[in-house]
Nucleic acid binder design. Structure first.
Lengths: 358, 358
DNA sequence: TTGTAAGCGTTATCAT
DNA sequence: ATGATAACGCTTACAA
């Protein structure tokens, strides 16, 4: 309907600015800005309509960077991950990213590559982009440890790992409940001698909590099972693990059956390799339940039982918490402990033909 | 040494700006800016020293957003991933992210969640943040397909998947070479009847290239092996796969041994599950080589042979290409095809005790 | 209700 | 070699 309006500038390719829209609509820049920010409160319908038409015609989109510079909000969320290679982190990331996108935020990712010294640098870099908040799944240890000051006054939510000096919202698997479920299931199936294998604690809260929960369970008066803990470092050779498993069986009392609880899928992988090396079969010589439920858990005969983490929900909850804080919610740090799901497969079942556990 | 200098402003917590540094050093803002941008060319040593001291004292860090607004560069790289859940994508992401960080760039991540319609929205969102370039690992299909216009004049590099309408640098596994190596190995080990299983092609270039390479190999005059292709969709039930495998063996000529080549680790997972269902053993009833080398490949007895992708190198090369373009490199689109690494495990070895393949 | 003008923190073009 | 000053695209007092 309207005649084509050749842009006055020589380069019509550049993104239109708020000034272009203002000119097109015959109003001031402020009015266009108000169209986006305070439309209902203070803008007459006819002017609003003209602005809207101009915006549509020029396909104008506000520049978040300019908005950030002026207004101080960037619609950006900084996500710091200890290790993108870790499937758990990625799964959480996915949930968080989705929730953020739905709320109109973009996620800036920073991967620590497991280098704890880079944590502070990561946060500073993100902060320099005026991110509105942080989602942190990091070590929380070492030189560059994050503290309240580092966050430049922006809210943060911690995922999976608490930080000593940081009173922020915290979202994680209910480690204690998950451990209780795993051990109760093993015990009920007749596995009485348990070995919990974890990566080195190194101050990582989730590892510590799982280990403590395990210790509490096996040392409780009412508990019928015995238990030991093994910290297994990546640098340690397979002999260490093989030896530990051999010892486990050797030290069992007559008739006492042994099972391993793995602290996460990294450990699960090593245990599965070890069992393969020994020529054992899960559910026979050795029972097994692992934290995390990797896609290949059902491929290891006769299927690895696992406590699946609600990773997507954790990510979404983290994003939700953060967005609430960004929107001004005050109050003390909150804690969301989400329940795990015990997936029972062959590795933890009492073998058919064996004497009944009851 | 120097006496404490109480900040004149009431809020000493705010990040220092270039103006603060200028005041502290007793110079103009322009001089401070020059200290960062054209230090060597035009700045006297003594002034430079004063500026440097002020910067150190105030712990000043330039604001990338303001720089982006003014100068047009954001030191940001937009990374669009079809699916963060895909370990391949993540591995590449990791390599790219590392290279970008080393070059002083930050990575903004956008996950499509395999929704091809969101590709355009992702690029627009990233572009609105003035990203200096794009790394794209996407579908390149559907409504929101990226084209040159979408990129807002910013350079892009394509990873793993070509786009029809996009003449950008391209980095990927050498699919043809990898397929040749996989098939040659199988043939040499005596597997003569091959079934290539791929996810539905759907216009994805890597899938198409692998499939075409396979077809060319098995139909070549000099080839001693026969071959078939199966497109297996996620929606299709396991019966389809089980039937295909059963047919494969049934249709083999007497003495002809059958093997599967899997197009990626998703397919590998399904094939491994199927073989487990049938009670077969890899390397016996069925030979196997898969594209991608997931961490659990060695756990499936007797070990799954695989063509490992140089994911880290692919990511780094992608970042390198992009940074070169950002720094002004002109010229036609380049192609980097990186070689895969054949990892031989039991699944593709001629079983001991079987008649010699030679 | 709408317009004017002063920032936000940089960089770049002028002068000097 | 250094200092004003005008952008960059937007928001928001303050005026009208």
């Amino acid at each position: 309907m309207s005649p084509p309006t050749p842009a006055p500038s020589a380069t019509p390719r550049a993104r239109p600015t708020i000034a272009d829209v203002a000119a097109e609509a015959g109003v001031s820049k402020a009015t266009v800005s108000r169209y986006f920010n305070h439309r209902e409160r203070l803008l007459s319908p006819d002017i609003a309509a003209r602005v809207e038409a101009a915006i549509a015609k020029l396909a104008y989109v506000p520049s978040p960077m300019a908005q950030a510079l002026s207004h101080g909000r960037s619609r950006l969320i900084g996500l710091v991950v200890a290790d993108v290679t870790n499937p758990y982190s990625v799964a959480v990331l996915r949930g968080a990213e989705k929730a953020c996108q739905d709320a109109g935020y973009l996620v800036m990712l920073f991967n620590l590559g497991n280098d704890r010294e880079r944590e502070r640098a990561a946060i500073d870099a993100l902060a320099s982009y005026q991110v509105d908040g942080f989602i942190l799944n990091t070590l929380g240890q070492g030189e560059g440890q994050a503290d309240v000051n580092t966050l430049h006054g922006k809210p943060a939510v911690l995922v999976d790992r608490r930080h000593a000096g940081l009173a922020a919202d915290f979202v994680s698997l209910d480690n204690q409940g998950a451990m209780r479920e795993a051990c109760a299931h093993l015990q009920q199936q007749g596995w009485q001698r348990l070995l919990y294998i974890t990566q080195p604690l190194l101050g990582v809260s989730s590892r510590i909590e799982r280990t403590e929960a395990f210790r509490a369970l096996v040392s409780s008066k009412r508990s019928a099972v015995r238990g030991t803990v093994l910290e297994l470092a990546a640098e340690q050779g397979d002999e260490v693990l093989d030896q530990a498993l051999t010892d486990l069986l050797r030290q069992a009392r007559p008739g006492e059956r042994c099972a391993v609880v793995a602290g996460n899928s990294v450990v699960t992988l090593r245990v599965a390799a070890a069992v393969s090396r020994m020529g054992w079969t899960f559910g026979q010589q050795l029972g097994f339940v692992g934290f995390d439920d990797p896609e290949w858990a059902s491929l290891i005969r006769p299927g690895l039982s696992a406590v699946a983490q609600p990773t997507d929900a954790i990510g979404q909850r983290a994003a939700q918490c953060l967005l609430e804080r960004i929107n001004g919610l005050e109050g003390p740090a909150r804690e969301s402990l989400l329940p795990g799901l015990l997936v029972v497969r062959g590795s933890s079942l009492w073998p058919a033909g064996a004497p009944d556990p009851g």
